[in-house]
Simulated assay, not measured.
Amino acid sequence: MSDLFDQALLADEPEPRSSVERRSARRDRAERKRRRRRRTAVAVVLSLLLVAALVVGAFLVLRPLFDGTDTPAADDYPGPGSGSVPVVIEEGATGAAMGSTLVEAGVVASQQAFVDAFSANPDAAQIQPGTYELMAEMRAEDAVSALLNPANKSELRITVPEGWRAEQIFERVASVAQIPLEDVEAAAEDREAIGLPEQAAENPEGWFAAATYTLEPDADATAILAAMVEQTTSTLESLDVPADEQHEVLTRASIIEHEVNREEDRGKVARVLENRLQNCSDDGLIGMDSTINYGLGRSGGVPERSELDNADNPYNTRIHPGLPPTPIGAPGVAAIEAVLDPPEGDWCYFVTVNLDTGETRFTGDYSEHLQNQELFREWLATNPTDDEG
């Protein structure tokens, strides 16, 4: 071979690395081995810890199956219970809060037992606030069921019919709530305590709303009357009646309530009142017997001539122009709505011609009104009761 050929072959062979490079390579290989060993050791330790946790967990779960033990149950009475215990469930009370209340009252043995029973009953969230009569030493499960039963709820229910005067309402409150009548009357005089607004007259007539009230059994006269006033103000506000018009709206509505009893006639009476106040009768008088009767301390009947001529009665709207000083009773929502939105019509007069059926004739013609009055007299001649609108 030529020297040229030998040199070409030698040029293709790698040059021998230096001793420094060889030592560095060995160190790199050793470091890589150490890192692999560390990762392996960590993985082994984690695996051992996981296995140990699984073993301990399995032991705790399975142990009761072999040694006959279990998580202790919350203390609970065997039931069914006895006697009667009043319990007050507060507004917004949680299951735990109810349980605490029942434990203090001696109804259930432990709060936890009640909470467990509460959680197990899908209807428990429907338990209402209020006073309940329960038995002492009940099973927690039975206590939850008892609180869901309306029959166990103690409450005071008072119904005020449409048209009732304040004195009738006071008597009803005294009777149902077993409160002395004088205490009810005294409560009515405390305007601030019962929430009478400034626009109410000195006489609070008309502000005790006609409705059915559900109250706590120990509600006093002030609380009861305040609920009625609140119902009235709430109704007026919901119907967007301005504060400075509320007294007049209640007055008109109370007259409607006493004059007719048929739904279709309320709006017409409201229109008659409006037309009368606009002087459709040319005398400025609304001329309602219901207001005269109120001033005489009665709810119905046909006023006698002497009563019609009595100017000392401030509620005599056949003599005194405009509306009476105050409402003459508790109007219902329908009568208030009639005042706010009466139908169009030229009616200026009306008379109920049959008190049994409530048939009422409306007209804008005075001559026709006189004929309708004659129909009423004919009805009176054959019927014992009398009441003219």
Score class of each variant (00 low, 15 high):
residue 168 Q to E: 14
residue 374 E to Y: 04
residue 265 D to A: 13
residue 176 V to D: 04
residue 4 L to I: 09
residue 278 Q to S: 11
residue 250 L to K: 00
residue 193 A to I: 01
residue 168 Q to M: 13
residue 123 D to C: 01
residue 387 D to K: 12
residue 223 A to D: 00
residue 78 P to W: 02
residue 34 R to E: 07
residue 214 T to F: 09
residue 115 V to I: 13
residue 282 D to I: 02
residue 12 D to L: 15
residue 255 I to G: 00
residue 165 R to G: 06
residue 348 C to A: 08
residue 179 I to C: 02
residue 73 A to N: 11
residue 109 A to H: 03
residue 119 S to C: 01
residue 255 I to T: 10
residue 224 I to R: 05
residue 271 R to Y: 04
residue 324 P to D: 07
residue 308 L to R: 12
residue 208 F to Y: 09
residue 151 A to T: 15
residue 91 E to Y: 13
residue 301 G to A: 05
residue 357 T to E: 12
residue 109 A to R: 09
residue 72 P to T: 15
residue 129 P to D: 08
residue 134 L to K: 06
residue 90 E to S: 14
residue 9 L to R: 11
residue 248 E to K: 07
residue 111 Q to R: 12
residue 223 A to S: 10
residue 371 Q to R: 12
residue 31 E to C: 05
residue 153 K to F: 09
residue 80 P to Q: 13
residue 318 R to K: 15
residue 202 E to N: 12
residue 380 L to M: 15
residue 338 A to F: 03
residue 215 L to W: 10
residue 372 N to L: 01
residue 318 R to H: 15
residue 346 D to A: 14
residue 176 V to C: 02
residue 212 T to I: 08
residue 366 Y to G: 11
residue 369 H to S: 06
residue 89 I to E: 08
residue 244 D to Y: 09
residue 112 Q to S: 15
residue 151 A to H: 06
residue 379 W to M: 11
residue 194 I to R: 04
residue 85 V to L: 02
residue 359 E to L: 04
residue 313 N to G: 09
residue 206 G to A: 05
residue 104 E to Q: 07
residue 11 A to T: 14
residue 107 V to W: 02
residue 19 S to L: 15
residue 292 I to A: 13
residue 363 T to V: 10
residue 278 Q to R: 10
residue 16 P to C: 07
residue 374 E to G: 09
residue 126 Q to P: 05
residue 272 V to H: 04
residue 261 N to R: 13
residue 146 A to M: 06
residue 294 Y to N: 07
residue 196 L to E: 09
residue 371 Q to M: 10
residue 99 G to H: 14
residue 40 T to S: 14
residue 351 V to A: 02
residue 186 A to C: 04
residue 318 R to G: 05
residue 3 D to E: 13
residue 22 R to P: 01
residue 194 I to Y: 04
residue 208 F to L: 14
residue 236 L to N: 00
residue 84 S to W: 12
residue 248 E to G: 01
residue 307 E to F: 13
residue 359 E to A: 08
residue 122 P to C: 10
residue 109 A to Y: 01
residue 242 P to M: 05
residue 131 T to P: 03
residue 187 A to D: 00
residue 183 D to I: 02
residue 158 I to E: 09
residue 258 H to P: 00
residue 387 D to A: 10
residue 256 I to L: 02
residue 342 P to S: 08
residue 225 L to R: 04
residue 238 S to P: 07
residue 278 Q to H: 14
residue 138 M to G: 08
residue 62 L to R: 12
residue 369 H to L: 11
residue 142 D to E: 11
residue 25 A to I: 15
residue 199 Q to C: 11
residue 21 E to K: 04
residue 259 E to R: 03
residue 129 P to Y: 09
residue 50 L to D: 00
residue 103 V to W: 06
residue 384 P to K: 09
residue 254 S to R: 12
residue 221 A to H: 00
residue 297 G to F: 09
residue 327 P to G: 05
residue 249 V to A: 06
residue 15 E to I: 05
residue 235 T to R: 14
residue 315 Y to P: 05
residue 40 T to A: 15
residue 223 A to T: 13
residue 154 S to A: 06
residue 271 R to A: 12
residue 298 R to C: 11
residue 373 Q to K: 15
residue 316 N to T: 12
residue 201 A to D: 11
residue 318 R to E: 00
residue 264 E to T: 14
residue 264 E to F: 03
residue 97 A to G: 14
